[in-house]
Structures are given as C-alpha cells and as structure tokens.
C-alpha cells in the first residue's frame, strides 16, 4: 500500500473517530420531523381550513381544535369550540389527554403555521399520533372562510363549488357575507372525521 493510500485511509478513520466523539446536537435540532414512529411525511401533517370548517359546522365530536397561541390572543379571537394550550406548555401533564391519545384528531392552529408546526413537531418527536396542523393558521382562515374570494371566471367547476361552500361557511361563522343573524343554531348531522388528503408530491431535488 502506497503512502498516498495510507494518508487518505488514515484521514477517513480520523474523521470517523472525531465524528464518534463529537458533541451531540442541541436539543432543538433533534426533533425529528421525519419521525419513523409517526410514519408521517410532512404531507400528512396538514389539514386545510375548509376541512376544519366542515368539522366545526357538522359538530364533529372526533375533532378537537387546539389554539396554541397565548391566552391573551385566545381571548381576543379563536375558532368556535377551540381550547387554549400555549405551545410552551404543550407537554404539561394536564394536557396529556389531549395531545397523546388515539381517539380524537387534534388540530393545532396559530396565527400563521409556525407555532402550530412547533407544537406538532414536539408531539411528533415523542411519537404522539393523531395530531394535525391547520395549514396557514388563522390568517388563512380569515382569507378563505371568513372573507372568501370569488374565483375568476375561467376557474374550474371545482373552484366554484369550493367557493359556494366557503360562502356558506362564512355565513355560518358570521363573516363578511353574513346576511342576518351571526349566531345560527349549530346543526348536528352525523359526525364526519376530517379526511386528510395525501397530496401528490412534486419531484424535488435529488437525482429523481
């Protein structure tokens, strides 16, 4: 074996030993977003505002909405029926029945998505199942449900159906399209669980 060979092989071994002795990463980075136990890719994490609206309107008993913002923000505005668990206290024992269970679907939401994502990641890293994030948070909620926009004329039929649903939902939640009382009696049809769509993922990076 030549000297050059020995040098590079030695370098590899040195690096491997160094890596073995290197400090483990700080806690925050070790939250595995792709936790095997969860068997979830990030595409299974989100539910849309429309799905949440449907669940509220149908009084779906299998869905629990959790507002992960601060108590002050929660008092000012939240979704009907939501309970408040600030993200920093998500692991408190008193809330364990909500976040670590296999009966209900819990949906986290915040103003945008980031705090809810944090709550979700913490739970996922501990192997808790049945947790979801409302995509886009309350901002998206206002944009799509409370003040839905009429789709452009050339939009597909599906878009118009969605718009009709949102207009109805907007009236239900007392939004901009409300014509009359903002507090309709909650109807109670058969419970319907949230169907979380598996989106086809676009080819991203790599050699695919």
């Amino acid at each position: 074996m030549k000297t050059t060979d020995k040098f590079f092989i030695g370098l590899l071994l040195f690096g491997a030993v160094w890596l073995l002795l290197a400090p483990s990463k700080p806690e925050l980075k070790e939250i595995p977003l792709k936790d095997l136990v969860q068997e979830a890719t990030q595409y299974d994490r989100y539910v849309s505002t429309d799905e949440v609206a449907k669940a509220i309107m149908s009084n779906d008993p299998s869905v629990i909405l959790i507002d992960v913002r601060s108590p002050e923000a929660y008092k000012k505005y939240t979704l009907p029926g939501a309970i408040n668990i600030p993200v920093d206290s998500i692991l408190n024992d008193q809330y364990a029945d909500y976040v670590n269970q296999d009966v209900y679907k819990t949906v986290f939401f915040s103003n945008g998505s980031s705090e809810a994502n944090r709550a979700w990641s913490i739970c996922a890293s501990l192997g808790y199942k049945n947790n979801y994030v409302m995509k886009g948070g309350l901002n998206e909620w206002i944009r799509t449900i409370i003040r839905p926009e009429k789709p452009a004329e050339w939009s597909s039929e599906g878009d118009f159906d969605l718009y009709e649903f949102r207009k109805g939902a907007s009236r239900f939640f007392g939004g901009a399209n409300a014509s009359g009382s903002a507090e309709p009696a909650a109807p109670a049809p058969a419970p319907r669980p949230i169907a979380h769509k598996k989106k086809k993922q676009a080819a991203a990076g790599g050699c695919e």
């Binding site: 590899l12 690096g15 290197a22």
Partner: peptide, 22 residues
Amino acid sequence: MTAAIGLFLMDAYGLIDIKLTF
C-alpha cells in the same frame, strides 16, 4: 464516507442542518 463524515461533523457543530436538505 468522506461526504458522510464531513456533513455529519458540520451538522454536529451547527454549520449545516441536514434535515433541511432535499
């Protein structure tokens, strides 16, 4: 192995977050 060692060393010292790559 050069790449694996290098990348995980950089990850350990906070120079790269492997979970953010594709």
